[in-house]
Computed example of a mutant assay.
Amino acid sequence: MAKMNIKKGDTVVVLSGKDRGKQGEVLHAYPAEGKVIVEGVANTKKAQHPDQQGQNGGFVTREAKIDVSNVELICPSCGKPTRVGHDVDANGKKARVCKRCGAQF
């Protein structure tokens, strides 16, 4: 699997699927699987059993993993969906770069 350009805490927009057009923050990234969990996107219901005696079970709504190819990063400076480039700054550190405006983040 190729390296993912999207990390935890990034704001992304969903490109395809039932939640196309929704924006949210990446809650968790799974680089080995090439998947991410985005806040408020791909909600599923899961049956929850009571953990201890006296607690109630029921259905819990939670976010499911979606493929990283179905989301695109939103640039923090220009606020538009963009592809991600990589650049080396003067100190020799790698940084992600917006392909639209050229801003580093």
Rank of each mutant, 00 (worst) to 15 (best):
A103W: 10
E33M: 14
C78R: 09
Q52I: 03
R62M: 11
Q55F: 12
K65D: 08
N5F: 07
V88Q: 02
N43I: 14
Y30T: 05
D89T: 01
E33D: 15
A47N: 12
L27V: 04
G92L: 14
C98D: 04
I66M: 15
V71K: 03
E39Q: 14
G21M: 08
K93W: 04
E25I: 12
K80N: 13
H49C: 07
K80R: 14
V60I: 14
C98V: 04
A42M: 08
G21N: 11
K93F: 06
E25P: 01
V13A: 07
K93L: 13
V84P: 01
H86L: 03
T82H: 08
K93E: 13
E25K: 05
N56F: 14
S16D: 15
G92C: 12
P31K: 11
K46C: 11
V13F: 06
K22Y: 00
Q48L: 11
E33R: 14
V26N: 00
D51V: 06
A29I: 00
K94F: 03
G58W: 06
N43Q: 14
I66L: 15
R83V: 01
R100S: 08
R100P: 02
T44A: 14
V68A: 09
D10H: 11
E39L: 08
L15G: 10
G85V: 02
M4Q: 04
G54P: 05
R62Y: 05
V88L: 05
P81F: 05
K94P: 01
Y30W: 13
G92R: 10
G54C: 13
E72I: 03
V84W: 02
Q48A: 13
D51T: 06
D87S: 13
S77D: 15
P76W: 01
V38M: 05
Y30L: 14
G58R: 12
L73E: 01
I6N: 08
G34H: 11
K8V: 11
Q53G: 05
V12W: 03
N70Q: 09
T61I: 10
N5I: 06
D89M: 04
G9R: 05
D19C: 05
V71H: 09
T11V: 10
K8S: 06
P50D: 13
D67L: 08
G24H: 03
G24W: 01
N5P: 02
K22H: 06
K65A: 15
G85K: 02
I37W: 00
